[in-house]
Design a binder for these strands. Structure first.
Length: 450
RNA sequence: GUGGCCAUAGCUCAGUUGGUUAGAGCACCGGGUUGUGAUCCCGGGGGUCGCGGGUUCGAGUCCCGUUGGCCACCCCA
C-alpha cells in the first residue's frame, strides 16, 4: 500500500475525471441561472449545533465533526446545505426580495459507509425558493402560490435533466404531498398518530417482498387488494378528470388536494416527467407539503435528487415564518445514470464543455530555422487570448506531432515551415492552407472565431 | 455501526498440485521509416503481487489480521 491514499469514500480526480465533474457542475449552474436563481455559498464547516438543532443528537455519528486543538467549540463539515441556507436567509430576511431564489453547488461530507452512488465527499446542487410570489392573502391564494413555487422548483430540476440529454423515459419525477396524503389517510381510517409508522412502511416498500408489504398495510386496515394500489404507488391524475377514481381505493380526496400542483405541471410543460406516487414520503420530519424524488425510470441506482416543501424551517433557525421549497441533487448518482445511459460525452466534447480544448497546436517542420519560431508563435497566440500548446517531446517527426495535436483535441495545427512561411491545418476537416508566418496568429484567430 | 465478496503494471487480465530473476495486450516514454493525425519496426520505464504477520526448505498461490473497493442492512438531511 502506498504510504498515503485518498481517504475512504473520497475521490482523486485526474484531468478527465475533473472534466466529467465540471460537465455536471456547469449544467447545474446553467439550469439554475436559466430559471432565475442567484448563486450563493456558505462555509464548508459550521458549528456542530447547527445540525443537531434540526436533526437531533443522533445525527452526530453521521458527521465529520472536530474540535480545534486547544479550542472549545465543536464544528462539523457540512452534511447538507439547508441549515446554512436557513441561517443566511434568517439573517437578512427583512431586506431580501420575495420570493428569494437561491442556488449553490459545492462539496458536502457524510461519515457513511461508502457504496455505489454514495461517498463520504460529494458535490451537491441545491436550489431553493423562499417566500411566495404574488403577495397571496386568502388561503386559496396561498395554496396556489405554493403550488406554483413547488412546480417551479421541479421544473428547474427537469430542465437540468433534459439539458443533459435525459428523457421522461429515462428518469421519473415521483411526487407526493404530505398534507394530501395525510388528509386522505385520515378519511381512510388511519389516525394521524399512526401515520408516521405507515410512512415508514411506505418508504421501505421496495425492500420487502410484496406479501410482507401487504401484510404491513393490513395492520392499518387495508385489504391485500387495496395494498396493490400502494404497491404500484402511481396515481393517475389528469387535469381534465379531477374526479379520477380507483376501483378498489377511493383516491378522490387525494387527487383533489394535488390538483393545483398538477395544473402547474401542465402549465410548465413538464407533466410527461411526473408520476404522483403515494410511497414517496422521504425520511425527514420537517417536510410540510409537496415532496419529490427523481429516480432512474427502471429503478436502477439510488435517488438522483430529492426535495420538498419545508415551511417551518426558516423559523426554526431564528427567521420569520417563511414558506420554502427546495431540493438537492448529488453528482455521484447523476454521473452513474449518465454513464448507464451513454450520455456522458466523449473526451473531446468533455474538454469543450470544460473550456479546456486547445485552440491551436504549434509545431515546426523540424528545420532549426523553423523550430526557433515555435515558442514565439505560441507566445503570440497566447497573448491574443488563445489556448495554444506545443510539444515537449524531442522528436520532430511531423506525423507524431500531429498525432499529439489530435490527441490533445486541438482545433488547428500551425506548422512552421520557415521564418517566413507556415501551414495551417484544420484538425477537424484536415484542410491545409499556406499562410505567411507573420499572418499566422491573425488567421488562426479568424478560424477559431468562426 | 453489522454481514458477505474481492485485491497481480496506469487499464483489462494470465500466472500449473506452493518451485528459479512475475507475464501479455493496451496505455505511456524514447528512437527509426513514410512531409501529415494511420500502419509498421526497434528500444525503454514502470510491480517489494494492497499492507503486516504466520505456516513452509520455498508463498502471487495456504492461514490470520489490517487497509481499501464492491454488495446488502442501518441511514439517506
Amino acid at each position: 500500500m502506498p504510504p498515503f491514499q485518498a481517504p475512504k469514500g473520497t475521490r482523486d480526480l485526474y484531468p478527465l475525471d475533473a472534466a466529467r465533474r465540471r460537465f455536471i457542475t456547469e449544467a447545474w449552474r446553467a439550469a439554475s441561472i436559466r430559471h432565475g436563481f442567484d448563486e450563493i455559498d456558505g462555509p464548508t464547516f459550521e458549528p456542530l449545533g447547527l445540525y443537531t438543532v434540526k436533526s437531533g443528537e443522533g445525527i452526530v455519528s453521521e458527521l465529520f465533526s472536530f474540535r480545534r486543538a486547544g479550542g472549545e467549540d465543536d464544528y462539523a463539515l457540512r452534511p447538507e446545505f439547508t441549515p446554512t441556507l436557513a441561517r443566511m436567509y434568517a439573517a437578512k430576511a427583512g431586506s431580501l426580495p420575495r420570493p428569494t431564489k437561491w442556488f449553490m453547488a459545492g462539496p458536502f461530507f457524510r461519515a457513511e459507509r461508502p457504496q455505489r452512488g454514495r461517498l463520504r465527499e460529494f458535490l451537491q446542487w441545491n436550489a431553493d425558493f423562499l417566500g411566495l410570489g404574488g403577495d397571496p392573502k386568502t388561503p386559496e391564494e396561498v395554496e396556489a402560490a405554493k403550488a406554483a413555487a413547488d412546480a417551479e422548483i421541479i421544473a428547474t430540476c427537469v430542465s437540468l435533466l433534459a439539458s443533459l440529454g435525459l428523457k421522461p423515459t429515462d428518469v421519473r419525477i415521483r411526487v407526493n404531498h404530505r398534507y394530501a396524503l395525510s388528509a386522505w389517510l385520515t378519511t381512510q381510517g388511519v389516525a394521524p398518530e399512526r401515520q408516521p409508522d405507515l410512512f415508514k412502511l411506505l418508504d421501505q416498500r421496495g425492500k420487502m417482498p410484496e406479501a410482507q408489504f401487504a401484510a404491513g398495510l393490513g395492520a392499518f386496515g387495508f385489504s391485500p387488494q387495496q395494498a396493490e394500489v400502494f404497491q404500484k404507488g402511481v396515481v393517475r391524475i389528469t387535469t381534465d378528470d379531477p374526479q379520477a377514481r380507483d376501483s378498489v381505493l377511493d383516491l378522490t380526496l387525494f387527487s383533489h388536494a394535488v390538483l393545483p400542483l398538477a395544473n402547474q405541471f401542465a402549465q410548465m410543460g413538464i407533466v410527461d416527467w411526473i408520476d404522483f406516487d403515494l410511497t414517496i414520503v422521504r425520511g425527514l420530519a420537517y417536510y410540510t407539503g409537496m415532496v419529490f424524488e427523481v429516480h432512474e425510470a427502471g429503478g436502477a441506482e439510488r435517488a438522483i435528487a430529492g426535495g420538498g416543501r419545508y415551511d417551518g424551517l426558516v423559523e426554526l433557525f431564528g427567521g420569520p415564518a417563511t414558506p420554502a421549497v427546495g431540493f438537492g441533487m448529488g453528482d455521484v448518482v447523476l454521473a452513474l445514470v449518465l454513464q448507464d445511459k451513454g450520455l456522458m460525452p466523449p473526451d473531446a466534447s468533455l474538454l469543450e464543455a470544460a473550456g479546456q480544448r486547445p485552440d491551436v497546436f504549434v509545431l515546426s517542420n523540424g528545420t532549426p530555422q523553423a523550430e526557433v519560431w515555435v515558442r514565439p508563435i505560441v507566445a503570440q497566440l497566447r497573448a491574443a487570448g488563445l489556448h495554444a500548446r506545443h510539444t515537449y517531446k524531442a522528436t520532430r517527426n511531423i506525423g507524431k506531432l500531429l498525432k499529439e495535436a489530435g490527441d490533445a483535441h486541438a482545433r488547428v495545427a500551425v506548422i512552421i515551415e520557415s521564418p517566413q512561411q507556415a501551414t495551417l491545418k484544420d484538425l477537424g476537416t484536415g484542410v491545409q492552407t499556406p499562410v505567411p508566418l507573420a499572418e499566422a496568429c491573425r488567421t488562426v484567430q479568424g478560424l477559431i472565431a468562426r
